[in-house]
Design a protein around this nucleic acid. Structure first.
Lengths: 194, 194
DNA sequence: GCACTCATGACAGTTCATGACATCACTCGT
DNA sequence: ACGAGTGATGTCATGAACTGTCATGAGTGC
């Protein structure tokens, strides 16, 4: 019956699954690419054809979310206040991430164990932030203001994201973001008032 | 004769100098640790005794600045508004960095060529931000507010830092930070006003 | 069918990183 | 003085992360 591996059979997703489970069992640095490839039934060379490096297997899926985020900013209707636009974009993103929570929790737990993974995550966030800034500018916002706004928006989003992933029971991600914005506004009012 | 390399002669700083010049000549990834060690007159094994990895040679000095930053926050006199405290701390840090501009420009140029270096820089910034947040909390600020404040402070600082490094002629770093704070406040007022 | 593409395997080679052990100059207590 | 540390370094060996190149074999289109 030789279950002839007739066709690629989606090596890529098998590699992701193998990597996630092995990272969970032996930790990120305790897992070799050879082991991941072996569990996925391919060779290490094939791993590097799908992912530029060992870290990328944890981040490759992220890039599928960015276009949607930018589109939700670009497509938001008519003239709109900056903070309303940001809230709209971030809660839309949150809605996409919500059902993936279990996978995201596992992923975050791995990332938090390794400094270089943390750096990679932050670099990716920085690229997202640049994309958001550019899209805001395209919508006519002042460049400097767009940069500051997206910086604050991401600071709030990341805070809410980490809290959401850490609390097993608690509000949805979108609700956390909705709650965080007025709270941040209160803080900023205090600063502005001097 | 035999100019006996009598003694260590500060291998570490020679390694840093060798690394910086080689990175400038052949780029970061185009330079091997063996080459750096050879130019510094030591072996690669010695390189790794001074620096945990190849990247660290670019970041090791950073850690000498953090204690001063935290001290300037902890030691600022009496009751003080959050934004004034942040301005005080960041301009103090800026004064320390100002004379090192040429070296920092070269370093930044190298970091910007490599994603993993960018990530490492951001991870280091994140650690600094956590330290600032903790120090603000120790001074009695509300934890959530401290986190948001340091996030905004770092966003402003990093913006100013990159602009300062990019403009060969222009205001000092401290002046840029002083100018940026009211500008950010204006933006935030606009958001808060909705 | 026949050429073509594309994912993969196979295999060698480079670089980074680290552990084990030896060496050599200098310091310090006696 | 002198012998036991101490610390920075070198040498050797090894593992793991990549990288280049060529071969193969299944599907695809004409």
């Amino acid at each position: 019956m030789v279950t002839v591996p007739r066709w690629p059979e989606d090596s890529r997703s098998r590699l992701v699954d193998a990597a996630m489970s092995l990272f969970g069992e032996h930790g990120y640095s305790g897992t070799t690419v050879d082991e991941i490839a072996a569990r996925a039934g391919v060779t290490a060379r094939t791993f590097f054809r799908h992912f530029a490096d060992k870290e990328e297997v944890l981040f490759a899926d992220d890039d599928t979310l960015l276009p949607g985020l930018l589109a939700s900013i670009a497509a938001a209707p008519g003239p709109i206040a900056a903070d309303a636009l940001m809230l709209h974009a971030l809660t839309t993103l949150a809605a996409v991430m919500q059902p993936q929570r279990p996978a995201l929790v596992a992923r975050q737990r791995i990332i938090d164990t390794d400094v270089s993974l943390t750096g990679r995550e932050l670099a990716k966030q920085a690229r997202w932030q640049q994309g958001v800034t550019a899209t805001l500018i395209e919508r006519g916002f002042d460049p400097d203001e767009a940069e500051i706004l997206s910086a604050i928006g991401f600071a709030i989003f990341v805070r809410a994201l980490h809290a959401w992933l850490a609390d097993d029971d608690g509000p949805d991600l979108a609700d956390r973001i909705r709650d965080a914005l007025p709270r941040a506004r209160t803080v900023l009012d205090a600063v502005s008032a001097r």
